[in-house]
Simulated scan of single mutants.
Amino acid sequence: MTELHQAAAAGDFDKVEDILRQNKCNPNQRDVDWSSKTPLHWAAARGHTETVRILIEHGARPCLRTDHGWTPAHFAAESGRLAVLRLLHSLHAPIDKEDCCGDKPLRIAQIYGHHECVRFLKKAEAECQVYRSMATNKGLSLDDTDEEWADQSKENEEDRSNIHT
């Protein structure tokens, strides 16, 4: 776990800001000991909204996924962090991606009984899809795919099909 991961998890905004301004750490660094979580995953899970904002402003990608396919939105949904979900949505972060089990942040919020998050995510998912469609039609670039995770998922699927043949 890097110094930036630790500061993001602790919600130490000043330290996160200092690390980012000095370019001491890649804001998209994955922690292999913690299922490939990035500092943004930690900040989202803990509800540190301003830390989430500054990480994204410094290049943190909200589409990056853990080993199990969770985005920062999944972590925010799990812990009922409505303010973080609202912020992610306002920044056009993907809040409607499925994890390895096919669960979107909406389903995670339902499982944990975070009713306000569920209400918000129902509306926000539809808005997210409309925005994605509009951006595609206008040729706008979207940062909503974790290429590394997609490649790994494809490899895992191929390995499973080879076992069964």
Rank of each mutant, 00 (worst) to 15 (best):
R65P: 10
Q6V: 05
R160S: 14
A45N: 07
C100P: 13
T66L: 04
W70Y: 15
T136W: 05
A43W: 00
I111N: 12
R132C: 06
Q6G: 05
R30E: 00
C25W: 02
L64I: 09
R21N: 13
A43C: 08
L40N: 03
V84S: 12
K37P: 00
L142K: 02
L40A: 03
K138H: 07
H48K: 12
C25S: 14
G69H: 06
R119G: 03
A7V: 06
D67F: 09
E125V: 00
E116N: 11
R86N: 13
A124G: 05
H115D: 10
A10S: 10
R65C: 14
Q22P: 02
Y131N: 04
V32K: 11
K15T: 14
E17G: 02
M1R: 03
H92R: 14
P94D: 05
E155V: 14
G47Q: 08
Q152L: 14
V118F: 04
D18T: 13
Q110P: 02
A150Y: 02
C117W: 00
F13C: 09
G59I: 07
K123H: 04
G113Q: 05
D151L: 14
Q129E: 13
N26A: 08
S153V: 11
S90V: 12
K37N: 06
D103I: 05
A10P: 03
H5A: 02
R119C: 01
S153H: 10
P94C: 02
S35H: 11
W70H: 15
R86I: 13
N137D: 09
A45R: 05
E78M: 15
A45W: 00
P27R: 04
D99C: 11
A9Q: 07
A124F: 00
E116H: 07
E17K: 12
A43M: 03
A9E: 07
N26T: 03
V118D: 05
M1T: 11
L140C: 05
D96K: 04
R119A: 09
V52H: 09
G80D: 12
D33S: 13
H5Y: 02
L121D: 06
W70Q: 15
T71F: 01
D99Q: 11
